[in-house]
Simulated scan of single mutants.
Amino acid sequence: MKPIFLLPFCVLLSGCHSSNKTETINPKHTFEFVKETDSTSFIHWTNGKRTFKSSTSVSHHYLDHKTSLQWSNDNYMCLRHPNGSDTWTDLILPLTNNEVKFYENTLAYDKINGIVIYETDSPPYKLIAENIPGKEKQFLGENWKNCSSLFPHYCIDSIYIENKELYVNWVTPNKIDNPHTTEVQKIKLKL
């Protein structure tokens, strides 16, 4: 591609969907682990004004040097822990109470409305949308084409939430008799 044509292309890419923007983390939002036993710890976290302590202890399986702060806003802090084999756990630390919430293989957040999208292994569904504060759930993907992987994230090209609507580019793998296909799934979240 000639350099003259490259500039408009780069400008077009930089204007793509807002979910690709780098997250900013409030430097006052911090956390630490306080050892309880050889296998568990409590989490202490702060929003810079108020300090919280997890209401129950957390297994060291989720708390070690690999656990990192992914994002934070006025309502939540999100820690992520890689579990190996292409799986991860997000720990949501609310900035209003001491209840730590765990989500396996989280794929998208609506941080304003407190909604999380994560994988499920409960057929025929592929994903779950959950309201973080209310714990209401909406099961998704019942009628989507089957993904050949145990992990639905292998069949997701992109995923994001905008105006309480979930957009998923669902891609089914190549098969000899059925070419690679992409379906855009648009779901109104009712949480």
Rank of each mutant, 00 (worst) to 15 (best):
T37I: 02
T37F: 02
T37L: 04
D38W: 00
T40K: 04
F42G: 01
I43R: 00
I43Y: 02
I43W: 02
H44W: 09
W45S: 03
W45D: 00
W45K: 00
W45N: 01
T46E: 05
T46W: 04
N47R: 04
N47L: 04
G48V: 13
G48D: 10
T51H: 07
F52Y: 14
K53V: 09
K53E: 11
K53S: 08
S54L: 09
T56N: 13
T56R: 12
S57L: 00
V58H: 01
S59D: 09
S59P: 01
H60R: 14
H61C: 00
Y62I: 00
L63Y: 05
H65D: 13
K66M: 08
T67K: 11
S68G: 12
S68P: 01
L69Y: 05
L69T: 03
Q70A: 10
Q70R: 08
W71K: 10
W71I: 08
W71V: 06
W71M: 07
S72F: 07
S72N: 15
D74L: 15
N75H: 13
Y76L: 12
M77A: 10
C78G: 13
C78M: 14
C78N: 10
L79K: 01
H81L: 05
P82H: 06
P82G: 07
G84Q: 12
G84D: 10
S85P: 00
T87W: 08
W88V: 02
W88F: 10
W88L: 07
T89S: 10
T89Y: 00
L91F: 07
L91K: 07
L93G: 09
L93Y: 08
P94K: 13
L95M: 06
V100Y: 04
K101P: 07
F102E: 11
Y103D: 03
E104V: 06
E104I: 08
N105C: 13
T106H: 06
T106K: 11
L107S: 14
L107T: 14
L107F: 11
L107V: 15
A108D: 13
A108V: 13
Y109I: 06
Y109N: 04
Y109A: 03
Y109R: 06
D110S: 14
K111W: 13
K111C: 07
K111D: 12
K111P: 10
I112N: 15
N113L: 13
N113A: 15
N113G: 07
I115M: 00
I115A: 00
I117V: 13
I117T: 02
I117C: 01
Y118G: 02
Y118C: 05
T120Q: 04
T120L: 05
T120E: 02
T120H: 05
P123H: 11
P124Q: 03
Y125V: 00
K126M: 15
K126E: 14
K126N: 15
L127P: 02
A129C: 13
A129E: 01
E130V: 02
N131K: 12
I132F: 07
P133Y: 02
G134R: 08
K135R: 12
K135E: 11
E136F: 00
L140P: 00
G141M: 08
E142F: 01
E142C: 00
E142D: 05
N143M: 10
N143D: 15
K145T: 02
K145G: 05
K145M: 06
K145P: 04
N146G: 13
C147A: 13
C147L: 12
C147N: 10
S148R: 14
S148W: 09
S149Y: 15
L150A: 14
H153L: 08
Y154K: 14
C155T: 05
I156E: 03
S158G: 08
Y160Q: 09
Y160L: 06
Y160F: 15
